[in-house]
C-alpha cells in the first residue's frame, strides 16, 4: 500500500493509519478563500469590462481556482495517490473533448438553422443563394 504516514509540512495533529488528516489551518483557510472568491466573482460580474466574453472568462477563471482548491484540499487530491487525480482529470478532459467537437460542429451549421420555426412557410422557388447550394 502507499501514501500514508506522509510528511505534509503542515502541523497535523496525528497521522492516521489510512489517509492523510487535514489540518484545521488548511480546512479553514480553504473555506475562507472560497468565500472570498465567491464575493469577488459576484462583484466582478457587476463590473462592465467591455466585452461580454471578458466577464465570462473572468468568472470561469475564478470558478476554476475555486474548483482547484476544493479538489486539492477538501478532496485531498494533493495528498492522495496520483491515479485518483488522473481519473478525475481524464473525465474532465473527455468532457472538454465532447464540448469542443460538438461546438465546432454546431457552429458550422448554424447558418442553416431557422431560429423561428413556428410560422415557417417554405418558398416555392429555390433560392440559389442558399449556402448549401453553393458550389465549392
Amino acid at each position: 500500500m502507499s501514501n500514508h504516514v506522509h510528511e505534509s509540512g503542515y502541523d497535523d495533529e496525528t497521522h492516521s493509519d489510512m489517509g492523510h488528516v487535514a489540518s484545521k489551518r488548511v480546512l479553514l483557510g480553504t473555506w475562507g478563500t472560497l468565500m472570498v472568491l465567491t464575493i469577488v466573482t459576484v462583484t466582478a460580474s457587476k463590473i462592465d469590462f467591455g466585452a461580454a466574453e471578458l466577464n465570462l472568462l473572468i468568472a470561469m477563471v475564478i470558478a476554476v481556482i475555486k474548483a482547484t482548491l476544493v479538489c486539492l484540499f477538501f478532496m485531498h487530491l494533493k495528498y492522495d495517490k496520483l491515479f485518483h487525480s488522473v481519473v478525475f482529470v481524464s473525465a474532465i478532459l473527455l468532457a472538454t473533448l465532447f464540448v469542443t467537437f460538438a461546438l465546432m460542429d454546431s457552429n458550422q451549421y448554424q447558418h442553416d438553422v431557422y431560429w423561428q420555426q413556428r410560422d415557417f412557410q417554405p418558398t416555392t422557388e429555390v433560392d440559389k443563394s442558399y449556402p448549401a447550394l453553393q458550389p465549392y
Binding site: 467537437f101 465546432m104 460542429d105 457552429n107 458550422q108 451549421y109 442553416d112
Partner: peptide, 16 residues
Amino acid sequence: GHHMFVSGQSRLAGMV
C-alpha cells in the same frame, strides 16, 4: 461523428 455524416453534421466535422 462517423455515425452522423449525413444527419446535418457540418462538413468540417465530417472530415475530422
